[in-house]
Design a protein around this nucleic acid. Structure first.
Lengths: 145, 145
DNA sequence: CAATGAAATAGGAATAATTCCTAATTAGGA
DNA sequence: TCCTAATTAGGAATTATTCCTATTTCATTG
């Protein structure tokens, strides 16, 4: 089930709850339940099409952008050039460990908050909005040595 | 002048020193001298063409990939979808503060080494190769409030 | 519960960034 | 100087994302 909170939030900020958006949310939710591997737009489209065959890729992109703007979704940009998305779980914050071989993503709970705080204090004219921290390497299956 | 060390390194690892590569290196070097704002491939091509009009974009991409592989260049991927590159200055390591308005990049010296260490220790089956840490926000000129 | 208007959608075209392909050229060791 | 594997130019192809526009629809209001 889609978290009721999210639906309430969308309603509150005046984002219409179309069936397409509900399906996309559903797909993201299922993904989060099934291990939290981030998805790209293409993948979201494929999954949504199983239940809603007419959805366009453009709608998926627009919706993901809207959800990102509303803080419901995180838009991730790794080195592999395609954006991936993950549902934001309430009050949770994490970073990623990405395998350069297979692309598998693991969450890491640590966050360099101390550095962000220091940067905020030393660059007072810069208004910090967000940050990304990603560690790349090779997982057990992909490493060669 | 291009750092002699880099040329030596390329020779040592068997990477041919073509005029195209020298020009690209020169451009990256000049960029580093002039404040260190990272460049994308298109920009590198434009600059190289001033002195070497025939160079192709493909060559620029290939060369930047080669340099990255050799550790001479850092390939950066910010949220704006285009890759940017910067010359690696010997023994120096830094991260970035990026303006979401104008794209201006500032270097930050702090690095979350402690976290990387901890991750290395707790995920022993994962072979860490690199990491990226970027703070996004708005610079003095672009912030609205 | 029907009308209405702004918001959202489908579908395809357009754009942007990057990579691929191939014949021709060239660096640099022998 | 010769030779060969590495590299290049140029354009085509691919991939990811955004734009465009006519049509549809949500959800508010009467």
């Amino acid at each position: 089930m889609i978290p009721g909170e999210v639906l309430k939030h969308l309603k509150r900020v005046g984002v219409r709850l179309t069936p397409q958006r509900q399906e996309i949310l559903q797909v993201l939710w299922e993904r989060a339940q099934a291990g939290g591997q981030p998805v790209n737009a293409e993948e979201v489209m494929k999954r949504v099409r199983k239940r809603y065959p007419a959805i366009s890729l453009d709608t998926v992109y627009r919706t993901l952008a809207t959800f990102t703007r509303e803080g419901i979704v995180n838009e991730l940009q790794f080195k592999d050039q395609s954006r991936r998305y993950e549902l934001v779980i309430q009050g949770e914050h994490h970073h990623h460990l990405v395998c350069l071989g297979c692309g598998y993503v693991r969450e890491i709970a640590y966050c360099p908050e101390d550095i962000i705080k220091r940067v905020r204090e030393s660059y007072t004219d810069f208004k910090i909005e967000e940050h990304s921290f990603t560690i790349y390497g090779y997982c057990a299956e992909c490493r060669e040595d």
